[in-house]
């Protein structure tokens, strides 16, 4: 055993013994201001870098409703939002907040048309062309695609990050959602909002061996402080879930079960949702080992839109890891930043 290996072994042992006393890493700390607040959701605007904003079209990030928004601003050095700010983008983020019991009545249209529409138009108002680049992640991506199909005016371009459009796939989630004996209405009637505990249990069941695998991985790399900080930041986020508004979920689940998006049977505010109405520049990002959204289910959007300027970026990695890992800072983030930069009509840089 050489000197470095001995040092690593000592460090591993020390870090493992001191795990219970380890300080939790700070999450979601990139400086931002709240520019709008309505019901539980907030629109955040990240403070620009010291050199100022370099691009004229702002960017709106739309995360999933069932997780906290700070997955896109996990921790310094592993933050998508921080990286985009450093590249000179004017970054806005929609924080869906925590629904309370009264939000069980919020409908799909309330969230996808009214709330997302307001966030988008407020973001777009910061640009001369009155448009913003829109990025949707996971369930957020389903919302951005539907919204763009019906209300394309404020959308300069669309980035879909691991966002499914074809719900009848080989994944476990799809199989569970389509189980005929599972009565979605009974669940909404019983709980109001879909409890986060139920959803978290479902996500754990997607790979029941994952906690054990994570524990072994932790022991294996315990010598690496940077890894440990990232690990605990991600665990903090993974265990910080929110419930889903009941009426919203009723419509969402029906769309999922009947594959409404691909069939063109979805409506938003009474208007039919045809994904072929999407004509803006499009970037679809999928991940090879995504066990929540099978990549084929997200890639399908490429064939459904009418955009002439469209790209598909397929990367290794999983649903979350690929967005917040070190490799994301080398591959995914620069790719998205250049996509926006190239489609910015009047660069200020």
């Amino acid at each position: 055993m050489n000197q470095k290996q001995e040092h690593d072994e000592g460090k591993r042992l020390w870090n493992l013994l001191s795990l219970p006393f380890r300080k939790k890493p700070a999450v979601g700390v990139t400086p931002a201001d709240v520019i709008h607040q309505e019901n539980k959701w907030r629109l955040l605007r990240y403070r620009p870098r010291a050199a100022g904003v370099a691009f004229s079209t702002p960017v709106l990030l739309v995360p999933s409703l069932i997780n906290r928004h700070y997955v896109l601003d996990l921790m310094p050095g592993k933050s998508f939002a921080e990286y985009m700010v450093q590249q000179g983008h004017d970054v806005f983020l929609l924080d869906w907040g925590t629904p309370r019991n009264e939000d069980r009545f919020l409908t799909f249209d309330d969230i996808c048309e009214r709330y997302l529409g307001r966030a988008l138009s407020l973001t777009a108002s910061f640009s001369k062309r009155n448009q913003a680049h829109l990025l949707g992640y996971c369930m957020g991506g389903i919302l951005t695609a539907i919204h763009t199909a019906v209300h394309p005016n404020n959308v300069a371009s669309l980035v879909q990050l691991a966002a499914p459009v074809r719900f009848h796939d080989d994944g476990l989630l799809s199989a569970w959602m389509r189980t005929p004996s599972f009565d979605i209405d009974a669940m909404i009637d019983a709980f109001g909002n879909v409890p986060w505990q139920l959803m978290q249990s479902a996500f754990h069941l997607l790979r029941p061996t994952l906690p054990l695998s994570k524990a072994v991985g932790l022991v294996d790399r315990a010598w690496n402080d940077e890894f440990l900080d990232g690990f605990f930041a991600l665990e903090t986020w993974g265990n910080d879930n929110v419930s889903l508004p009941g009426e919203f979920y009723r419509r969402y689940a029906r769309m999922y079960r009947d594959d409404d998006l691909v069939r063109g049977a979805m409506t938003l505010g009474g208007a039919p949702v045809h994904l072929s109405s999407i004509r803006c520049p499009l970037l679809v990002v999928t991940f090879e080992h995504d066990n929540i959204v099978p990549w084929q289910s997200a890639a399908e959007l490429m064939t459904l839109v009418s955009s002439e300027d469209k790209q598909h970026l397929h990367l290794p990695g999983g649903h979350v890891g690929a967005v917040v890992s070190k490799s994301a800072a080398r591959g995914l983030w620069p790719n998205i930043s250049s996509f926006w930069a190239l489609r910015d009509r009047t660069s200020l840089a």
Binding site: W176, T179, A186, F191, L210
Partner: peptide, 30 residues
Amino acid sequence: TARYLEAVLKSSAVLIPSGALLSAVMKAKA
């Protein structure tokens, strides 16, 4: 093991009764 469990959790022999049980409990609560 993960692959095996995925096959089990996807099989209708598990999903149909589990879904029915869950629905019955929720109907009772409602």
